[in-house]
Write a protein that binds this DNA or RNA. Structure first.
Ligand SMILES: [Mn+2]
Ligand SMILES: [Mn+2]
Ligand SMILES: [Mn+2]
Ligand SMILES: [Mn+2]
Lengths: 145, 145
DNA sequence: AGTCGAATTTAGCATTGGCTAAACCTCTGT
DNA sequence: ACAGAGGTTTAGCCAATGCTAAATTCGACT
């Protein structure tokens, strides 16, 4: 059983790399909508500059990305106006927030400092499957008791 | 204390996103050298096709990437010959393997199934800071007792 | 030695995500 | 009313990562 065929090994491993590449292709959209939702909740509206500042990228980068998010049906925007989320956008933001929170709180519960938990969770969240997320949830539930 | 300035909030959050982007820029090189090291150890040599097959990408993609890895000083290769790692390449592979193993074993210890641990760790490994890695190590040490 | 199949490389292309600089709108305050 | 500041968009660029198809080289077997 430990002896795997060359081919089966390749198949198994390439599946992992494919998943990671697929995660990355969805990552940016997830971060954008989550951030936009946060800005709307915190300050009433999300402007391009705020998004750029929080992401640490140039304004022009945000403009271009927002067009893609519109094409994906996650965001609506009239020229020179603040950014709005579609229903689908809100849904995605909500899902993302929940996941992000669990990952961040999990790291804290594991004994990681606040700043590190904040930073690491921003990348880790996108690679956590449902199964792993559930395991983290169980760990958190255990911790409380 | 809970009330953060708009600016300070932006600075903190953009730092997290910058770290994630920086992680991604290093990720591919890390995966390549780790995979090449594995292939050399397992089968005596690493050929382009093996790398392509295990990563799940086209041959031409690997050729191009190997050139960049050569420029980075991680890999050496004569035309039409198998791939060798430089000293730096082996070092990076070793560091990567250790980290990858801790992350994967950590997920297993958390109660995640084998396949999921294998897949999720492939992406998560690149976003785990030294601090978080140590926390995972402590968790594993505790588990054993 | 010659041929054929497998591996490798090259060429040419597309998409994603980033940047700067310059032009363009909006809104607010005088 | 309108000037100026600040926000937004456009234009044009670049690097990274992927692909397919075609050309090339290597090596093993007759
Ligand atoms: Mn998030
Ligand atoms: Mn994120
Ligand atoms: Mn990632
Ligand atoms: Mn990896």
């Amino acid at each position: 059983m430990a002896g795997k065929t060359r081919q089966s090994k390749a198949k198994l491993q390439s599946a992992a790399f494919r998943r990671t590449r697929s995660d990355h292709s969805k990552e940016l959209a997830a971060d954008y909508v989550e951030l936009i939702a946060d800005l709307i909740d915190e300050r009433g509206s999300a402007r391009g500059t705020d998004v750029a500042l929080r992401l640490g990228v140039a304004n022009a980068t945000v403009v271009k990305m927002l067009k893609r998010l519109q094409d994906m049906g996650l965001v609506t925007q009239e020229p020179y106006r603040p950014i709005a989320l579609t229903g689908e956008g809100w849904e995605m933001a909500e899902t993302g927030r929940k996941k992000h929170q669990i990952v961040e709180r999990f790291l804290l519960a594991l004994g990681v400092g606040e700043e590190t938990a904040r930073i690491d969770s921003e990348g880790i969240e996108h690679h956590v499957s449902d199964e792993t997320l559930r395991a983290m949830g169980r760990f958190l539930a255990r911790q409380i008791s």
